Amino acid sequence: MASEEAGRLSVSDRISHQLRENIISGKLPPGTGLIEMDLAAEYSTSRNTLREVLHQLGREGLVTFVRHKGVVVRTLERKDVRDLYVARRTLELQALATGELQQPALLDKMLAAIRAAERALLKENWQAVGTQSLRFHQHIVSLLKSSLLDEFFRTISAQLRLVFASDPDEKRIQTPDWIQREYHICELVMNNRRSEALTAMTRYLDDSERMLLEAMSRVNRSFR
């Protein structure tokens, strides 16, 4: 988020944004407890403000309120994945179908995210690979030039990060193939090849959804 945009947000919105970003980056994995008093001290704000923030994140499906445990970062289920991909297809395919493709600053951000994912891959930092992939897809949605949809997709990205974390070995889902496919989509966008970009993204999302559902099934079987 640009600093000038952040400056226009309320205190609670700024904290919500930061906590959401911490989920996207993997700093707050599923099951992490969010303690009002500690967060109020960290962000130098009142517990009432933090309570408002946590209820907002609850409405976004990012945290849950557990009896006798308080507020924890949510663990997502298979049905949540299907809902997320309905939203992803709606936003990302619409962005490629109707968005303004030739936005140099945005295209630079797409490339930067992919290159950052490549650097993370070389270091075998699988969590960072996934985070940069989410950044790339955030920039795809930004082709629509809608701050409202941008903010909505940040919530989708945060929920996707929680899905990624459902597999203890994220290496199994953050493979080099996804980076190459993102490069290909980015190249199609840069060359204004809208129809081909749509086809490539459709296949990407179909394969991604299937892979995540298989990963969740694998993890569920391991606990039986």
Rank of each mutant, 00 (worst) to 15 (best):
T90Y: 12
D108K: 14
P176D: 04
Y204T: 04
N22Y: 08
L149W: 08
E5A: 10
L62G: 01
F223L: 13
I140P: 05
F65K: 12
H17G: 07
G31I: 08
R82Q: 12
A200D: 06
I140Q: 05
N192F: 03
R115L: 13
I140A: 05
W126C: 04
F153W: 09
Q159R: 15
R89P: 01
P29T: 06
A6V: 10
R89L: 06
L34C: 09
E124M: 08
D150S: 10
V11K: 12
V81R: 03
L39E: 09
A97L: 10
N220T: 13
T64P: 00
H184A: 13
L62H: 01
Q18S: 09
L19G: 07
D83E: 14
A87L: 15
A112Y: 08
I156D: 06
T199N: 08
R59W: 00
H17A: 12
R8W: 06
Q159W: 00
R74H: 05
L57N: 03
A116V: 00
L213I: 12
S157W: 00
L76F: 04
L93G: 04
Y85S: 02
A120V: 04
L144T: 04
H137P: 00
T90P: 00
R8S: 14
G33M: 11
E77V: 11
L91P: 01
I23M: 10
A165V: 03
F164C: 01
F164W: 13
S146T: 06
E36M: 12
Q174T: 10
R74G: 02
L76C: 05
Q18R: 13
I173G: 02
R67D: 10
H184Q: 14
S12C: 00
V219M: 07
L134M: 09
I114C: 04
P168C: 07
S16N: 03
Q94E: 14
L111P: 00
Q127S: 14
T49A: 10
R203G: 12
V141T: 10
W126R: 07
T175N: 02
Q132N: 15
L19M: 09
Y43M: 09
I179V: 13
Q159H: 00
A105Y: 07
R172K: 15
N191V: 02
T155L: 01
M201G: 03
F152A: 15
L19Y: 04
M190K: 14
H17F: 11
R47S: 13
L111C: 05
L96H: 06
R135S: 10
S3M: 09
A117Y: 04
K109R: 15
M190H: 09
D150T: 11
D169W: 07
A95Y: 04
V189G: 05
Q138G: 11
L39K: 07
L84Y: 01
T32P: 04
E21N: 11
A97T: 09
M201A: 07
E182P: 00
D169K: 10
A116K: 11
M1T: 11
S16I: 01
L188Q: 13
V71R: 05
N220G: 07
L212G: 03
L62F: 01
R8P: 00
L84W: 01
S10Y: 05
L213R: 03
G7W: 06
